[in-house]
């Protein structure tokens, strides 16, 4: 900052700080305080009696077979879809950046699904995959929808690599595939990890696609994810189960995100 008299600098700083107030206030009112109340709900057994039951709700949740099914399905989705998504996104981004530099229009095909309302395309997916009896359509829908954000991130990162690096490597004898493996991938690793994080986070949000695809609150077993569990509890007014599963899921997500970000911070040093 420029050199100004100390008290003016403090005034400036305060003003800047005040800018944060609307956002923070809204966050507090609509997210943080309600979340704390949910936490409270998860520790009591009944809205009316309000007996503190500690972790009983959590234990019930974990032992609930539907929760387990939902959890298992969510994990399966993550472990299967995310790697496929990331690999595909990397391949496509590399292709877009190096092979099809001229054709900017092609990118639209991959980015558009991200923005298009799911409701619009679910019909088509249902028509094509309606007979399929497993979770494949859902996985395909997930990949279709989420490749856009990964491609945006990856292509942005790829374009920041200077050409000189490639020239130098080519002079050293590297060519084609190995060129990319040795130079490109390490350089965009942070972006890859961030894309992976986004993909994992988005996999928790697959509920919307799933709900529209199966068209009801009770999808077949393989489509039953955590969000259905929570949603159905919501509809049944079973606040205790919902509260505890919400908190559990939030802790899970928080753990995953924190792990990623801290790992990334360490990597950058």
């Amino acid at each position: 900052m420029a050199t100004v008299k100390p008290h003016k600098s403090i005034r400036w700083n305060t003003k800047c700080l005040l800018c944060l107030v609307p956002s923070l206030l809204g966050l507090l009112l609509f997210y943080i305080i309600p979340y704390l109340r949910v936490l409270y709900y998860s520790l009591i057994n009944n809205q009316f009696k309000k007996d503190f039951v500690g972790l009983k709700n959590y234990i019930d949740a974990i032992q609930n077979e539907y929760f387990r099914l939902a959890f298992f399905n969510s994990i399966k989705l993550i472990t299967v879809c995310v790697p496929v998504l990331i690999l595909l996104a990397i391949a496509v981004s590399l292709g877009l950046t190096f092979l099809l530099k001229k054709l900017r229009l092609v990118r639209v095909a991959f980015i558009l699904p991200m923005l298009l309302p799911t409701a619009s395309v679910v019909l088509f997916f249902r028509a094509v995959f309606g007979q399929v009896e497993n979770e494949l359509p859902l996985y395909l829908l997930f990949i279709w929808k989420n490749i856009g954000i990964c491609i945006i991130l990856l292509t942005a990162a790829l374009t920041t690599i200077e050409d000189e690096l490639y020239e130098a490597a080519k002079l050293d004898g590297a060519g084609g595939f190995s060129l990319h493996v040795k130079i490109t991938l390490p350089l965009i690793l942070p972006t890859i990890s961030f894309s992976t994080l986004m993909a994992i986070v988005n996999s928790f949000k697959i509920f919307r696609e799933s709900y529209l695809y199966y068209g009801s609150n009770y999808p077949p077993d393989y489509g039953y994810t955590l969000q259905y569990y929570m949603n159905n509890n919501f509809l049944k007014f079973d606040y205790q189960a919902l509260a505890s599963s919400s908190v559990l899921t939030s802790l899970l997500v928080a753990a995953i995100v924190s792990a990623f970000l801290l790992a990334e911070r360490r990597y950058q040093r």
Binding site: I33, K205, M230, N231, F234, S246, T249
Partner: peptide, 14 residues
């Protein structure tokens, strides 16, 4: 990063 479902109950109650 929180999925909506986690926040829907707090949202509703709030």
């Amino acid at each position: 990063m929180m999925p909506l479902q986690v926040m829907i109950l707090p949202n509703y109650i709030g």
